[in-house]
Computed example of a mutant assay.
Amino acid sequence: MSGHRSGTRLLTLAAVSAAVSAGYGLLVRPRLLTWGATRDEATRVFPGDEIVLVADSSSTMATTLPAPPEAVWAWLVQMGGDRGGWYSWDWLDHFGRPSADRIAPEWQTLAEGQHLNTAPDGRSWFTVAVLEPNRTLVLRSDLELPSGRSFDPGTTGFPPRARMDGIWGFHLRPADDGASTRLVVRTRGTGRPRTFNRILGVLFGEPAHFIMQIRQFQNLRTRVGTTA
């Protein structure tokens, strides 16, 4: 009898786990991946998407900010771990230092190919992949696993066998009211080994990005609102 009860509990636990997983996959995950975005924004092709042609994971999140695109751009263009920060949870992604709360002239210059450090020792970084002032900023990340060190795909010959590649794109468009900005943030990622990266993305990468991106939206709204 005890064996029968144990088997029943295991079956019940498996059924509950399957139901929770299905509910997350069908109801929660799609909302996380498209938070704030319209259907058109979520399905539109943006500059930089072609960098990761076949993505294992992708998200499109959006918000409306109370300032015109050029005002929002001034905050985005100075992002970087060794610059103005990322305007998110600084204790997680800016070495505990507060992100900039002002427009700094020395950080208003950015160029394609430039590295924006994400670690204080310079071992990891984003590369500016697409730059169209006041309209598009796409940052590229190529990380070797398990070290987490960045590499430049064009200069390293064969890429590492275990790696994570992705983009983080910021796309600004004037809102319908003519005074605000629609900010659409697109991510696309892939990696090797593929199964491992897919599981890691669903379990950790996507929820972490959602939390950090929501925080960035909130902090950008505060900043552009005080300078608009």
Rank of each mutant, 00 (worst) to 15 (best):
G23I: 03
G25C: 04
V77N: 01
G36N: 12
I211L: 15
D82A: 14
V28K: 05
Q213E: 01
R44G: 10
W73K: 09
R135W: 01
Q218S: 13
V128T: 03
G178F: 01
I211F: 12
L33W: 02
W168H: 13
G169I: 13
F196S: 03
T195W: 09
V185F: 07
V138W: 01
T12W: 14
V130W: 05
L145C: 08
L33T: 11
F46G: 11
S147M: 10
T156I: 15
T181G: 14
D165E: 13
R135I: 01
G178N: 00
E50K: 12
H171I: 10
F170I: 14
T190A: 15
T136Q: 05
T156A: 11
Q78E: 09
T227K: 07
R188E: 03
E50M: 00
L200S: 06
E112H: 03
T109E: 12
V28H: 06
F170L: 11
R29T: 06
R221S: 13
M164Y: 13
W91Y: 14
I167K: 09
P66I: 03
R9W: 15
W86A: 14
L131Q: 10
A129K: 07
L53M: 02
F210D: 02
A55V: 02
M164K: 12
S99A: 14
T155S: 14
G122H: 00
R31I: 13
L220Q: 10
N219D: 05
P160F: 15
A18W: 13
G81V: 12
P159Q: 08
I167H: 07
T63I: 15
A55K: 05
W86P: 08
V138P: 04
T34P: 05
A18G: 13
R173F: 13
T136K: 00
S99E: 12
G205T: 05
A19F: 13
G36C: 10
F170T: 06
Y24W: 14
A14K: 14
D101W: 04
M1Q: 14
V128K: 02
G84A: 12
W125A: 08
G148S: 11
S150C: 10
W73S: 09
V224E: 00
T187N: 09
R83S: 07
T127I: 00
T187L: 02
L183M: 05
S6A: 15
P47V: 09
T118I: 15
I211D: 07
R198A: 05
G96E: 02
A175G: 00
D152F: 03
R29M: 14
A175W: 00
N117I: 04
S124T: 12
G113H: 01
L116H: 09
L76A: 09
G148R: 14
L143E: 13
D93E: 11
R31H: 00
E206Q: 11
F126R: 03
R182N: 09
Q78A: 11
R198S: 03
L183G: 04
P153H: 05
P153D: 11
T38A: 06
G81I: 07
G225Q: 07
G23Q: 02
M61S: 12
D121C: 00
V202E: 10
G157K: 04
A71G: 11
Q216Y: 04
E132W: 04
R123E: 06
D176M: 01
H94F: 09
A18C: 10
F95L: 02
D49F: 15
A111M: 13
N197K: 11
R39P: 05
P30L: 08
T127D: 01
S150T: 03
W168A: 03
L137P: 10
Q114R: 01
L116R: 12
